[in-house]
Amino acid sequence: MKVVVDKSKCQDHGQCVFSSPDVFRLDGEGHLQYVSDAADELRDEVEEAADVCPMQAIRIEG
């Protein structure tokens, strides 16, 4: 599954990290890093991360 974060919308709130720590993390400066090609078995938690994103910056393709 392909995970896409619209960096023009993302404000590094980090809510996605709590929902899907295997895919999303905040770096040492507090900026979002993520795995763009995530395993399909992580889909449920990535969908939850997309739902809780206050900026609705996360989408799943494929």
Rank of each mutant, 00 (worst) to 15 (best):
D12K: 03
L42M: 11
V46W: 07
Q56T: 11
G62D: 09
R43S: 08
H31W: 15
K7N: 07
Y34S: 13
A38I: 02
A39P: 12
L42T: 04
G30D: 02
D22S: 07
V46N: 06
Q33P: 11
K9V: 03
G14R: 02
E45L: 00
D51L: 13
D51W: 11
S36H: 14
F24K: 03
Q15N: 15
D27Q: 08
P54C: 08
I60D: 11
R43Y: 11
G28L: 09
G14D: 01
Q33G: 12
Y34L: 08
K2T: 13
S20I: 04
D12H: 14
C10E: 08
D40R: 05
V4P: 00
F24D: 02
S36E: 15
G28W: 14
Y34F: 11
E48S: 12
S8M: 05
G14C: 01
S36A: 14
H31S: 09
M55C: 10
E29S: 14
F18A: 14
E29M: 08
V3Q: 02
M55T: 05
Q15P: 02
E61G: 05
E45A: 04
V23Q: 01
Q56H: 14
M55D: 13
D44R: 08
K2S: 09
D40C: 05
S8Y: 03
D37W: 02
E41F: 09
F24E: 06
C16F: 00
S19D: 09
P21Q: 01
A39L: 15
V23I: 12
A39W: 10
G28H: 06
H31D: 12
A49R: 04
V52R: 00
V4K: 10
